[in-house]
Design a protein around this nucleic acid. Structure first.
Length: 311
DNA sequence: ATTTAGACCTGTCAGC
DNA sequence: TGCTGACAGGTCTAAA
């Protein structure tokens, strides 16, 4: 579920909270979540490491650990982080009818930043802890993931993890120019929607922000990527940068699962123009927003603002 | 060479 | 109330 803005927002929150903290130990409750190395090795290697820094690349969260280790995290559809105040702990008793759900036990929320898990999703998320990191100061970082798609890996810093190798430019960095985007689109015959979802073209765009960026630029999701005019490419570039930037400023987009480190929902769902707004009026012209399926994914667009035919 | 189902997973919601 | 199918912020693989 998290796209670039959600991952970036999490990275900023983690930087402000756990940078410099030492991992006392970790627990793994769903083995497949830790895909490299073997989770036994993972648990052994992570002990007593200090969190040296936190970065983001595309939708990957990158955590530098002391001893030249790199933790890479991809949350896929429903992965989330929650930071528990000291005093909280995992109750690892298996629940009767659900062998993979885990409960959290502890005192009432007392941390000033942690008054209540305010997002509607946070209570639910607490039950699906797959990995936990317990810090020396007693705090506990939970990786929760109802759908179990997310992956956490540990690599020696010297070799860049393969997963990061094929990623395209960072859309919010200087390297992402109009020309870079134009060059990438010029050689792709696929639809523009699929092309934007391709992490090798631009890193970090997912279904929400692809739809939003296309609406911003007035481009139909089925337009062939290499037929965009230079004017349209310029508009799309601006659309990508501004919708992602806005997403970060609003703390990400929450529809179901996503919440921030303290369990609060991201504000950006109040600011989307087309995503999941099928049947509602276009914010620009009032025409009814439509939905179509493209490569097994929903696409939301305004049929009046985003015409398929080239003028 | 691309496109596209299917897999991986669990939960929710609408409709019968 | 209970069942069924569609759908959900992603990405990889194999078959068409």
């Amino acid at each position: 579920m998290p796209e670039l803005p959600e991952v970036e927002y999490t990275a900023r929150q983690l930087r402000a909270s756990i940078a410099g903290a030492t991992i006392q130990y970790a627990q793994v409750f769903w083995e497949q979540t830790v895909s490299h190395p073997d989770y036994h090795d993972f648990l052994a290697q992570v002990v007593n490491r200090r969190v040296e820094g936190i970065r983001r690349r595309g939708k990957y969260l990158l955590v530098n650990l002391s001893g030249d280790l790199l933790l890479t995290i991809h949350r896929r559809m429903s992965g989330n982080f929650l930071l528990l105040s000291p005093g909280w702990q995992l109750d690892t008793t298996r629940r009767e009818n659900d062998p993979v759900a885990w409960k959290i036990k502890g005192p009432e929320f007392s941390h000033p930043d942690y008054m209540a898990p305010s997002g509607p999703a946070s209570h639910r998320n607490l039950q699906y802890c797959r990995v936990s990191f317990v810090f020396a100061d007693g705090r506990c970082l939970l990786y929760t993931d109802p759908r179990k798609f997310g992956r956490i890996e540990l690599w020696p810093m010297v070799c860049e993890p393969e997963a990061l190798h094929g990623l395209g430019p960072e859309p919010l960095a200087d390297e992402f120019s109009v020309q870079i985007l134009a060059d990438a689109l010029a050689v792709r015959k696929r639809g523009i929607k699929q092309t934007l979802l391709d992490q090798g073209v631009v890193a970090g765009i997912g279904n929400i922000y692809a739809d939003e960026a296309l609406f911003y630029a007035g481009i139909h999701p089925r337009r062939q990527a290499n037929t965009l005019t230079s004017h349209e490419v310029r508009a799309l570039h601006k659309g990508i940068v501004s919708t992602l930037t806005l997403g970060i400023e609003h703390g990400g987009t929450s529809f179901n699962d996503y919440s921030d480190l303290w369990g609060a929902a991201g504000e950006n769902y109040n600011h989307v123009s087309v995503y999941q707004r099928e049947g509602q009026p276009c914010v620009r012209c009032g025409t009814t927003i439509e939905r179509m399926v493209i490569v097994q994914r929903s696409s939301h667009y305004c049929p009046a603002c985003q015409k398929l035919t080239v003028e």
